[in-house]
Design a protein around this nucleic acid. Structure first.
Length: 460
RNA sequence: GUCCCCAUCGUCUAGCCUGGUCCAGGACGCCGGCCUUUCACGCCGAUAACACCGGUUCAAAUCCGGUUGGGGACGCCA
């Protein structure tokens, strides 16, 4: 049993591709099979090495692995050729001298007649040979139907009349997609072809090729598309679509993988899956047939979940680059872990955590102007002054701090919040923050006093 | 336009194959409440769906047909 993921390096690995890779990987690992990577880089114009690197890095980040080294389709043209030769010899393929212009006219005419554009078979019986600019076409059966039982969609049948004699070898001598895929899948002995929904229409063409070549046909499974909120195919305008962009936004790979797996696949009511759990529970029968809308809320929820699950030292290491980007890095690991503890339940992503933790070690704390206007009036200043006095030393326990607040509140005849909020603003610059006592401990008496002074001096 | 595929709460889905246990279950979000010095977290609760029409049947979310809607494919791209 062998599956493959076959992306073309013409762009970053996106969410949809990642899910296809994941399903192939899960299936192979579940069946104790083999999972290989094949980079389909035969489009020299659009393929770029940096995208290959992006794909490899994405797969690694997601926590997937593949067997053996990645295979590059561009290096296999000689293999593709042997299959084409076989077809040529058996009469299953022929040279076509039709000019691209003629083909284009054909298409235009068909479209105008509201018909399906198809090659008319002009050169099919001409017995032509190689020539500059010539292509090789498949001589498809002129009647009958082609059908297969899709591993995900069930039985699918298509009339061979709907197909045309597709180009197998381009004028530049390279095999086209369908030819290359069949040659590669066959020679690599792929048994299960799991790919995106958009390939359903290629499947009958490929099956016909397998049949003409006398090869055994692999099983096919087509996973539904992922759509944006507007139910249109997911694209850039829906926001981030590349896998690595999610890493940059502070998502954990476990969260993305878990989310992607559950997008289309289900296992009863279970929502949270570790990778090993997924492997043992996975099967294609439980993959849905319909397209799914990508929902960031649920991804966020899963990310929060995995953030809370991650051991603090590990989480601290993950947060580091995000704090560093904000120039708010704590002086040492111990301090870092302390602040992690105070923000890990307040941010849905590492980026959000960093944003909420930046005030601790930022060089210049800026007070939120609207909040300052509201909280640093006469009564606010009075609160701050008395708190400054009371907090010359940081209380030993949370309870002690509570007591101080209670006493000051009683003394001034005000609510606790009227003390806490000005203090919060002075220390963090904002009205929402982690618990005040935790902040006091982390900042220390000196820093607290400095920030309170700064707030007392605050001018609009 | 032609062909292929799909259709359960706003979203992801369970159930559908093997009709009755489903006046449809779970999760996320939304809304309300509790907790609380803020924001979160946590806990509790509420709202919310079988696209439509017809057929089969004692009985249909489940089977069949059609309609509508959506998606995909129609390249010398992959």
């Amino acid at each position: 049993m062998k599956t493959r993921f076959a992306p073309s390096p013409t762009g970053h690995l996106h969410i949809g591709g990642a899910r296809t890779a994941l399903f192939n990987w899960l299936l192979a690992r579940n069946q104790n099979g083999v999972f290989v990577l094949r980079i389909e880089d035969t489009d020299a114009l659009r393929s770029e090495e940096r995208f290959t690197e992006d794909i490899l890095a994405s797969i690694k980040w997601l926590g997937l692995d593949y067997d053996g080294e990645p295979v590059f389709q561009s290096q296999r043209n000689h293999i593709h050729k042997t299959y084409v030769d076989k077809l040529l010899k058996s009469g299953g393929a022929y040279y076509c001298h039709c000019s691209p212009q003629r083909i284009e006219e054909l298409r235009a005419r068909a479209l105008e007649a509201k018909d399906k554009p198809r090659y008319d078979g002009h050169c099919r019986e001409l017995g032509l040979g190689p020539a500059p600019g010539a292509v090789i076409r498949f001589k498809k059966p002129s009647s009958g139907t082609t059908s297969w039982v899709d591993l995900i969609k069930g039985p699918i049948t298509i009339d061979n009349d709907e197909l045309d004699d597709l180009v197998l070898v381009k004028a530049d001598g390279l095999a086209t997609y369908n030819m290359a895929v069949v040659a590669d899948d066959a020679s690599m002995e792929i048994t299960h072809v799991i790919r995106g929904d958009d390939h359903v229409n290629n499947t009958p063409r490929q099956i016909l090729l397998y049949e003409a070549l006398g090869l055994s046909i692999p099983q096919f499974g087509h996973v539904p598309m992922i759509l944006g909120e507007d139910k249109k195919r997911l694209s850039k305008r829906h926001g981030a679509t590349s896998v690595l962009a999610y890493r940059e936004m502070g998502y954990l790979p476990q969260a993305l993988v878990n989310y992607l797996a559950r997008l289309g696949w289900s296992h009863g009511d279970q929502e949270i899956f570790s990778l090993p759990e997924m492997v043992s529970a996975f099967n294609l029968q439980s993959v849905g047939k319909s397209a799914a809308v990508f929902n960031k809320n649920k991804l966020d929820w899963l990310n929060s979940h995995y953030i809370k699950e991650t051991p603090v030292p590990q989480l601290a290491a993950l947060l580091k680059p995000f704090l560093s980007a904000r120039d708010a890095l704590p002086p040492n690991e111990e301090a870092l872990e302390k602040i992690v503890l105070t923000v890990r339940e307040r941010g849905k992503t590492l980026e959000e955590m960093a944003q909420k933790a930046a005030f601790y070690y930022t060089k210049d704390l800026v007070l939120n102007p609207t909040a300052a206007k509201k909280l640093l009036g006469e009564s606010g200043r009075k609160s701050l002054s008395s708190l400054k006095e009371a907090l010359k030393e940081i209380p030993n326990t949370h309870e002690d701090f509570d007591k101080i607040l209670d006493e000051l509140a009683k003394e001034h005849g005000i609510k606790k919040g009227e003390l806490a909020q000005p203090l919060r603003l002075a220390l963090t610059g904002e009205t929402a923050s982690p618990g005040l006592y935790d902040i006091l401990v982390i900042l220390g008496a000196d820093e607290c006093s400095k920030r309170i002074d700064a707030a007392l001096k605050y001018q609009e």
